[in-house]
């Protein structure tokens, strides 16, 4: 009983945090606030992972997203600093209306889809095996069934690092002048 209350409490708090964070990410005017809201979403989803007995993934979510990706975002925002112009939206009110309409339509559609999905009523989970979602269990799967994908992910990350360095490194003055010519 207590378990159920704790579980429900954790779920609702996490879900609220995630949805509110998502809204905040999309809606805030400044990028730094968006990044903070994204952090909230990530933490909320990590909480949801916990209720789903995915302890390892919850940890990874915090580590990778909160610890790496959001920090990276913040870092870039700092790097660009005040030079980032404030929101000068040139869009007309009609296009805003269309956007809002699309948003409403997609929300309704998503709700209809989920509500009508022929799954046959609420599906309550069975109690999980004790080792479900544990580090050892997931690790075993990852290094047996998913080992090729795991290695490929390593290659992908290496490639990404090289790519990032290639794209973002500071050019010499000569190349800079050239790249300016490309602009309008």
């Amino acid at each position: 009983m207590i378990n159920a209350i704790v579980e429900q409490g954790l779920f609702y708090v996490s879900a609220l945090l995630a949805v509110a964070g998502a809204l905040g990410t999309v809606a805030s005017k400044s990028a730094i606030r968006s990044a903070m809201s994204l952090l909230a979403t990530i933490v909320g989803i990590a909480g949801l992972y916990l209720t789903l007995s995915a302890q390892l993934l919850a940890a990874i979510q915090i580590l990778v997203y909160a610890g790496a990706i959001v920090v990276l975002f913040v870092f870039v925002i700092m790097l660009l600093g005040g030079q980032v112009q404030p929101n000068q939206d040139k869009r007309t009110s009609s296009s805003r209306a269309i956007g809002a309409g699309l948003f409403a339509l997609s929300a309704i559609l998503a709700a209809v889809l989920v509500a009508r999905a022929g799954l046959g009523g609420p599906h309550l989970f069975d109690p999980p095996r004790i080792e479900f979602g544990s580090v050892s269990e997931l690790g075993r799967v990852m290094f047996t069934d998913g080992v090729i994908a795991f290695e490929l992910i390593g290659v992908l990350l290496t490639t990404a690092i090289v790519g990032v360095m290639a794209v973002a490194r500071t050019r010499h003055a000569k190349t800079n002048a050239k790249s300016k010519e490309v602009g309008p």
Binding site: N3, A4, E7, Q8, F11, A15, A18, V19, A22, L23, T25, V26, T41, I45, L48, T51, L52, S53, F103, S106, A107, A110, A111, L113, V114, L119, P122, H123, L124, F125, D126, P127, P128
Partner: peptide, 19 residues
């Protein structure tokens, strides 16, 4: 931990995705 049905998670995920 069995009191929250699967659908709730899916709804939350759908909402976040659309946002």
């Amino acid at each position: 931990m069995t009191s929250i049905p699967l659908e709730y998670y899916l709804v939350v995920a759908a909402v976040i995705f659309v946002i």
